[in-house]
Design a protein around this nucleic acid. Structure first.
Lengths: 109, 109
DNA sequence: TTTCGATAGGTAGCTAGACGACATGTAGGC
DNA sequence: GCCTACATGTCGTCTAGCTACCTATCGAAA
């Protein structure tokens, strides 16, 4: 599945996976991949600009470290990022219920 | 709610409302407004280009008429539009279940 | 030793689609 | 005459995701 299908909700997904624990870009990509059972496979040209944008907006804070000789930039959710995530989750529930009502919610919601 | 939140799924919504009965642009706008309980309010700069695109792609067919002295362009779903709608509905169910699984489906989801 | 896959981070240029602002016109009520 | 609802449309702008490309480390395989 392309992130294009998630348009406008990708930020929420990223914020959601770093909510549980701070993660670096590659780790976020893997977390989304596994949590979606393989459905989400973000190209780096989508992920990294998104992370930088979210940091610029103040929702994430990053720090560099070196693990196993490789440099990592680890992102953690800020206070305002946590609030943003809650708002985005609310947006998502509204959006999905509206679209679901028109398209037919299908099996079990 | 902005159509931006529906990105990539707006076409499906339009095809869905004209599936039941042929409608003109303004009527489609009203149908989406009422079916979403007021949540969707499409600007004309979003709706009309979308309709022309869907017609160009062969999913809709239009015809002009005059009702009460006003000109209407009425759109109806084509055979291929019907197939496209089914495909888009399927996409939506997949997308919403993936996002729901990560964000939390909310109450009883 | 070189090559390859996994890990790790990044940019540049392109494109689709939604947006706000604007343009045009009819009909009916005040 | 003016306003609101009805009705259709364009134009230039902006967001955000995409493809393609680049750099670099590490361990295993050839």
């Amino acid at each position: 599945m392309k992130a294009d299908a998630l348009r406008g909700h990708l930020d929420a997904l990223i914020l959601a996976v770093v909510e549980d624990e701070p993660l670096h870009g590659y780790g976020i990509s893997e977390a989304l991949h596994s949590r979606s059972e393989g459905a989400i496979d973000l190209p780096t040209g989508t992920l990294y600009p998104a992370l930088r944008r979210l940091e610029r907006l103040g929702y994430l804070r990053s720090s560099w470290s070196t693990v196993g000789g490789r440099k990592r930039r680890t992102y953690q959710l800020t206070r305002s990022g946590r609030a943003e995530l809650a708002a985005r989750q609310h947006d998502w529930h509204q959006t999905s219920s509206v679209i679901g009502a028109i398209l037919g919610t299908g099996p079990a919601g």
